[in-house]
């Protein structure tokens, strides 16, 4: 697969503060790449450097294998932090301006307004828009040049649940078109739902990167319950059990590699115990994320 973005040793110092430290990243065509990290971990600074608004202190990066330049930026649609537009211009006029800068076909404007469902309000001034509409206009402006890559930084920040769902739908639709998307967020649930790959930043350093599908792999955690007084003791005799913990009314069994919930069920059945509750807990990205961050604190 073609490498779209390659980052090597990218560093940014603000005085004594090192906002981004020796960052290495690769994003390939067609990926939906999630950048995770707590607030202030250097996500926006990194994207700012990639988009030419922040001057890097050291390191280099390339888009499509070429050195960065303003011509290449025209092939990327990006919204960093909150939406930025001229408040006194209408949505339509703002997009016209974006299209002129990007030297994009003005015919795209009507199309992208349709995608983000703003056609009805396009002639109203930007300053009259609600936050959700502003975010949607920002996505429209990123799409106006029909870019190969889309960069979205906290696109659902400050939105209500409906707005979040809408933006997520838009992102999924765009991803389905085969576009590469880089999505910075601290909402783990969001990244797990829409991304194919992810990287975790902490204090400007890359602490983990890999495919989202890998998150659920590895040891399983099975929650189990049955009407039996010595259930805990019996569970501990199960060869597939690494550890047994009481969680609420149920027991949480950390499974050894290669053992699954059905093995546990069979074991109990053979002992003459019928389970009343059995559930496999997939490890969520949230758990993984907190583990990664905790590991790196040591």
């Amino acid at each position: 697969m073609q490498t779209v973005l390659s980052v090597k040793g990218l560093t940014k110092n603000f005085g004594k503060l090192c906002a981004v430290n020796q960052l290495n990243l690769e994003v390939k065509a067609g990926q939906v790449f999630g950048m995770l990290g707590p607030n202030g971990s250097g996500k926006t600074t990194t994207l700012g450097m990639l988009m030419g608004v922040t001057n890097p202190s050291a390191g280099e990066f390339s888009w499509f294998g070429e050195a960065p330049s303003h011509t290449i930026r025209k092939r990327i649609g990006a919204v960093l932090e909150h939406p930025i537009f001229y408040p006194y211009l209408s949505g339509q006029k703002n997009l016209e301006l974006n299209a002129t800068i990007k030297q994009a076909d003005p015919a795209n404007i009507a199309k992208v307004l349709e995608v983000v469902e703003l056609t009805a309000r396009k002639d109203d001034k930007y300053k009259t828009y609600s936050l959700g509409m502003k975010q949607r206009l920002a996505i429209a402006s990123a799409l106006v040049s029909d870019p190969e890559i889309l960069i979205l930084d906290e696109p659902t920040n400050g939105l209500d649940p409906m707005g979040i769902a809408e933006i997520r739908q838009i992102i999924k639709r765009i991803a389905a078109d085969g576009k590469t998307i880089i999505l910075a967020s601290h909402l783990l649930d969001e990244v797990q739902k829409v991304c194919t790959h992810y990287a975790v930043l902490r204090k400007g350093q890359l602490v983990h990167s890999g495919p989202v599908d890998d998150v659920g792999r590895g040891e399983e955690l099975v929650e189990v319950n049955a009407y039996h007084d010595d259930l805990a003791l019996i569970l501990q005799k199960f060869e597939g059990a690494k550890s047994v913990k009481k969680e609420g009314a149920n027991y949480a069994v950390q499974m050894n590699d290669g053992f699954h919930s059905h093995d546990l069920n069979k074991f109990l059945f053979n002992k003459g115990i019928v389970v009343s509750y059995l559930a496999t807990q997939k490890k969520s990205l949230e758990k993984q994320f907190l583990e990664i961050l905790a590991d790196n604190k040591k």
Partner: peptide
């Protein structure tokens, strides 16, 4: 100064204008 208060200079650059342009 509007370009700075609205931060639109930032978006102009992101959109593909060079600083010189």
């Amino acid at each position: 100064t509007n370009e700075f208060t609205y931060r639109t200079i930032r978006q102009n650059i992101i959109d593909g204008l060079s600083r010189t342009e």
